[in-house]
Design a protein around this nucleic acid. Structure first.
Lengths: 205, 205
DNA sequence: AAATTATTTAATCAAGTGATTAATATTTCC
DNA sequence: GGAAATATTAATCACTTGATTAAATAATTT
């Protein structure tokens, strides 16, 4: 079957609909009839193409985790960039990703809580953090050069926290602060530059 | 009926079971039969005491949001403490809360994403942040004294991010770093002192 | 002790859900 | 053009789920 220009195939439309709804609402709260309606197809086609709701969900996990970690390994293991440049790269990567897909953080956090080994089986390798050039540089900087007795993991947590948490908590932050979506997005754009500066500051002895 | 010493009533046991499962798994993924089994009761009692699954869930939301915001207003509006002391109080409050109930952050974040007005109808008032003494002190410190052109909301986000995110992301952080639960808890305890220091540092011009 | 109220249970129900299927339509291949 | 393959649909099914109910038991009140 020749696909129409600019249009997805039925198979792709089902997967896109599934991804949207599973990411936003989770597995249990998403009905197969919801997916069919979102995709604009008959329900039987979901089973025709994907065999079951669960197999479709497995695909969505694969894609979401793939998107979550895409680009990380390259940044973390670039041999010619400084620690500071790596942090800038990582922060920019994630702010860009999450502005485009604000439902992703909660999906990842929820799935990791339900199935902690998911990330390992979906592409996470040791060189994304533990055996990365980044971690080597961070440890050298903190322990050897600055003689800090603080565990370097704190700074990894802080970098991820300041970058990812605002997206996961956006509805909460908007409610407690009264800010609009526009203001929120503007703050996230500001944080591209601010977060690396803050991380640099808190690493000072 | 006289309740046995040290034992909850049937009604309380049902609510405790519901809270455990709803907080961990969410509304849709929790079956009423699951709750009945967890509470050790016949399923009909759930409807006898609470009328429906949804009403029971509403109670759990009320309790969880109540616990989430308990203590915040007092810290935020204490007239005799400094900005720094408020930050220390807030960080200690939340690290204590979340060490005791690590499932709470994701529950709150999920519920806020599903129903953004929930917090407003469950006890959030403007004097918890926007009209708080804390916010007044923060704005004064940043704008008037240090002449920073950075939106004070960034620091609120950072404080919450560094405090809450590690708990929400604990499975992810343990997986990428390889640390154990014991190491994780130790790091959280360290952060009681570290986070206020970091916040102080990033507020420097 | 009897009446009343509260609690508990097994059985059952209606509605919803994920999956299946026979039939039909469309597209591709020879 | 017909056969084969692929795609699609409405109807249906078995099972699950939240809720209900009649009956039995326990506790409380009179």
């Amino acid at each position: 079957m020749e696909k129409k220009a600019k249009d997805l195939s039925t198979e792709e439309r089902i997967k896109a609909a599934a991804r949207t709804l599973f990411t936003r609402k989770g597995y249990a709260a998403t009905r197969t009839r919801d997916i069919a309606k979102e995709a604009g197809i008959n329900l039987a086609l979901l089973n025709y193409y994907y065999r079951s709701k669960e197999k479709l969900f497995d695909l969505v996990i694969l894609e979401n985790f793939g998107q979550f970690v895409e680009g990380v390994r390259a940044i973390m293991n670039e041999q010619t960039t400084s620690l500071e440049e790596k942090i800038e790269g990582l922060v920019n990567l994630y702010i860009g990703k999450l502005l485009a897909n604000p439902d992703l953080p909660l999906f990842i956090l929820n799935e990791m809580r339900s199935n902690p080994k998911t990330l390992k089986s979906k592409g996470l390798t040791k060189d994304m953090l533990r055996n990365s050039h980044f971690m080597k540089q961070l440890t050298e900087e903190l322990i050897l050069r600055r003689k800090l007795s603080v565990n370097p993991i704190h700074f990894v947590m802080n970098t991820l926290a300041m970058t990812v948490f605002p997206f996961a908590a956006a509805p909460l932050l908007k409610e407690v602060s009264g800010m609009s979506e526009e203001v929120f997005v503007a703050l996230m754009e500001e944080r591209r530059k601010l977060i690396p500066v803050w991380i640099k500051k808190i690493m000072q002895p």
